[in-house]
Design a protein around this nucleic acid. Structure first.
Length: 113
DNA sequence: AACATGACGTTGC
DNA sequence: CGCAACGCCATGT
């Protein structure tokens, strides 16, 4: 479900881990969303826009990884996402509001990618 | 089965 | 703004 949802996040916008969790019906599973993305097979990184998922503070999470954050920021900037001097994204402007409610149920019987 | 460990979030200083 | 304490969920050992 994580992949199904993240796949639909439009270019140039972002979502938070908790937001993805909420969309898929587990509002407190933000951490698990991170797990899912961590296990994203490299071959699917072109299909699932993992770089558009950031934390609720508007920052890129760097926990347990050193190289990924820089790459993630570069990818986002390449699609027009601007970062503040302190390295935050303006969530109020760039947050994707999510799919329509009816859409979510449909996602369930669609292929994950 | 128990325990540690994260791509986390909220709350309360 | 920052920081710590908890709570949460899935994995790996």
């Amino acid at each position: 479900m994580v992949y199904r949802i993240v796949r639909r996040v439009p270019r140039g916008t972002v979502v938070t881990y908790g937001q993805v969790a909420a969309i898929l019906g587990h509002p407190r599973a933000a951490r698990a969303v991170g797990q899912a993305l961590r296990m994203l097979p490299p071959g699917l990184q072109r299909i699932v826009p993992w770089q558009r998922v950031i934390n609720a503070a508007g920052r890129i999470s760097h926990r347990g990884d050193v190289l990924r954050p820089d790459r993630q920021r570069a990818l986002l900037e390449a699609e027009g996402v601007r970062f503040s001097r302190s390295g935050t994204v303006d969530l109020r402007r760039l947050r994707w509001r999510g799919p329509r409610r009816e859409w979510i149920v449909k996602l369930r019987h669609e292929p994950p990618f």
